[in-house]
Design a protein around this nucleic acid. Structure first.
Length: 694
DNA sequence: CTGTTGAAATTTTTT
DNA sequence: ATTTCAACAG
């Protein structure tokens, strides 16, 4: 007990934040608007609980990313350390804080399942399928069931997985999920059902869990009489961040973890719920006071992040939302530049505009890492990326394809995964079809042989394969036998795999040099892990964010611009934020225009983007596209005209300073060259308009 | 059975 | 631009 330190702890907080931090054991819901010190409050609460004497290893902190958990634990640690001098306890708080259970629902699920999974009949060495693996399995079953043979084409494997995952995560009946979110797939309902049955079945046989299974099995574990109560006994306090983006499964987990809501704290902002495509629902938040009648609800409205002009723009967007808690953020930072709305002629000009501003701010003392460019879809930044590369401006991109999901990295990891779990058919097929002369058919045969031998790779020894593969085949068998016999030192294992794999790389993909460098990185990452299983689990659940995260020399990497999807920008903030491609069709994405619920989610997404800015906010949109598929809605067109985002209504625009579109000089010259003689020389509005149609 | 080619269809965001 | 599938040659 350290009451003195605990008093000092809350000194810097406002009234509502204190209320939340010093709340006792009853269920607590913190409704926290953007930038209202949500993380600080959670961090202080963790510190407060520990200072009050709760053992840190009995606190569970559930966050949206591992990064967020690590960051919060670090902050709580330094908070306690800074107060430690004031308290007389003399304990070493840093070691105590470090032992908090922190991570994503999925990561914690994995930890618990490794420990208690046998209670529900789970093999102790189950492997985790990531998104791509799950898709691949869908693909295999899709052809196995002969679903591809039909008049109209069956949905793609990725779509099949999306549908399946939505049903599981949202606990929704297939029919209703289809009509609401995948209406174009309705005709396939019965066959989808068959496919999903086969999918569940095959996963079980392969001792493999996908992301959704982790949550489902956690619930199953909590419902198990012995394992359930054992797990409940582990924790005194459960704190959940970003509660608005949890799905019904996750809510079920919490209900079982904290019956009566004792020790449960959930934090969220209904205005920022942007993951409904993953089955998340604000319903969890709204339901909280009903589920726990003795719940305390604390609302945080004072924003510490942004200037009032930035908030005015954000509030204006939210005010037009169809429903939700009316919430008006306010800030003591009254002064600041008005956000800027910048129409651009085309994507190139938008790129030019953004880079110019970034460099200008940089020269005025705002480091690159204090600035971020945000966009709706990962591919929206490729034009910008090319220009940044050309100008040698360092950047990191978050969101989109992850390093561990690239084909060559997956190839490499597949060897270890098969060694770990010979029943993993997806990984098994992956390594086998690499050899020339071995296709899916032969691969399947070989995997059957392996299964019959109980996973002993020597069984492959006396098997003949096509002559083209004969030499590699022998090497592969030797490699697998060698791998299967060990568990420690994954880096050493990868070194051997890499030697075997190297000759295949140039045959399989273009760009072999860059890819081969990636593979070295994988090996370096592996060297941080003692066991193969731990390494593989980590790569499936929390892979490094981008290739750039790993490559490159440290000196250059010190300062870098941030490019991020809006989704990946959740919870973060920057001094200057540039939202690009704010056109209808991009924000909101034209994939969703029919359904009003989904449009509302896109509006919140836009809101999230705006509220990331501390001081400088720019919203840009090109008025014309030259690239196909960009806002035109069609795949074939080579250019299209764009409309400003419907969320930028006249009312909202009033909160912005609107710039007049400017044509870059070289374009004006080209343009004037094209004009018939006799036209006036000056850039006129009429000409500018013609440019749009010509 | 494998690997290649060409034509046709296709939905973003992520643990 | 990418994924999927059928047709065909080895």
């Amino acid at each position: 007990m350290a009451p003195i330190a605990a008093d000092h702890l809350i000194e810097t907080l406002n009234f509502e934040q204190r209320q939340a931090v010093e709340h006792g054991d009853g269920p607590l819901l913190i409704v926290a608007g953007a930038g209202t010190g949500k993380t600080a409050t959670l961090v202080h609460r963790v510190a407060w609980l520990i200072l009050r004497g709760s053992p840190s290893q009995r606190i569970l902190l559930l966050t949206f990313t591992r990064r967020a958990a690590a960051e919060m634990i670090r902050r709580a640690e330094s908070l306690i350390a800074s107060l430690d001098g004031l308290s007389a306890t003399g304990n070493r708080p840093s070691t105590r804080v470090g032992r908090i259970w922190g991570g994503t629902f999925h990561a914690i699920a994995t930890r618990l399942l490794r420990r208690y999974g046998e209670a529900i009949g789970l093999s102790h060495n189950f492997m985790i399928h990531d998104r791509t693996d799950s898709e691949d399995l869908m693909g295999v079953l899709r052809t196995e069931l002969g679903l591809h043979k039909a008049d109209q084409r069956f949905p793609q494997k990725a779509t099949c997985l999306d549908i399946y995952s939505r049903c599981v995560n949202a606990q929704e009946e297939l029919t209703s999920a289809l009509t609401k979110y995948f209406p174009w797939c309705l005709p396939w309902k019965e066959n989808l059902r068959k496919l999903f049955d086969a999918y569940v079945d095959r996963k079980r046989k392969s001792a493999v869990l996908d992301y959704d299974d982790l949550l489902v099995c956690w619930i199953e574990l909590l419902d198990h009489p012995r394992a359930g109560s054992a797990i409940r006994r582990l924790f005194d306090y459960v704190l959940v961040d970003e509660y608005q983006d949890t799905n019904p499964l996750q809510a079920q987990i919490l209900y079982r973890l904290c019956p009566e809501g004792k020790g449960l704290t959930c934090v969220g902002d209904d205005a920022q719920s942007i993951y409904s495509f993953r089955g998340a629902t604000v319903y969890n938040m709204l339901e909280f006071p009903k589920r726990f009648p003795n719940a305390t609800v604390v609302t945080l409205e004072q924003n510490y992040r942004s200037t009032q002009p930035v908030l005015n723009a954000s509030n204006a967007v939210l005010r037009e939302a169809r429903e939700g808690y009316r919430k008006t953020l306010w800030s003591e930072r009254k002064e600041g530049p008005k956000p800027i709305l910048a129409p651009c002629m085309d994507e190139d000009e938008q790129t030019e505009f953004v880079i110019e501003r970034i460099l200008d701010f940089y020269n005025r003392g705002i480091a690159l890492r204090r600035q971020a460019v945000l966009f709706r879809a990962s591919f929206h930044s490729i034009g910008l990326e090319a220009e940044l590369l050309r100008r040698r401006i360092p950047f990191h991109k978050y969101g989109g394809l992850k390093f561990a999901e690239t084909a060559h990295v997956k190839d490499l990891l597949a060897f270890l995964r098969v060694a770990e779990n010979p029943r993993d058919l997806i990984a098994g097929t992956r390594i086998l079809v690499m050899l020339p002369g071995i296709g899916p058919r032969t691969a399947q045969k070989l995997l059957n042989i392996l299964a019959q031998a109980g996973g002993n790779f020597s069984a492959w020894r006396d098997h003949r394969v096509a002559s083209a593969a004969a030499q590699s085949w022998k090497e592969l068998v030797d490699l697998m036998v060698w791998l299967a016999a060990r568990e420690a030192n994954p880096a050493e294992q990868l070194a051997k795999v890499r030697a075997f794999y190297a000759p295949f790389l140039p045959q399989l993909y273009d760009n072999p040099i860059a890819r081969s460098r990636d593979l070295e990185q994988v090996e370096r990452i592996a060297s941080r892990y003692r066991s193969r299983k731990a390494f593989l689990t980590e790569m499936a659940l929390d892979p490094p964010n981008s290739t750039q995260d790993l490559s490159g020399n440290p000196e250059l990497e010190e300062d870098y611009l941030v490019l991020s999807t809006i989704h990946s920008a959740k919870g973060l903030e920057w001094d200057a934020v540039y939202v690009i491609h704010a056109t209808d069709g991009n924000i909101p994405s034209d994939m969703v225009t029919d359904c009003e619920e989904l449009i509302e989610e896109e509006r919140r997404l836009f809101y999230v983007a705006l509220t990331r800015a501390r001081t400088h906010l720019f919203v840009c949109y090109p008025m014309r596209y030259f690239r196909p598929g960009f806002s035109t809605g069609s795949f074939g067109a080579d250019f299209g005209l764009a409309q400003i985002s419907r969320f930028l209504t006249p009312k909202v625009c009033k909160a912005f300073e609107e710039l007049v579109p400017q044509m870059p000089r070289h374009q004006i010259e080209d343009f004037e060259h094209d004009l018939p003689d006799g036209e006036p020389d000056h850039f006129t509005n009429r000409r500018y308009l013609r440019r749009l149609w010509s």
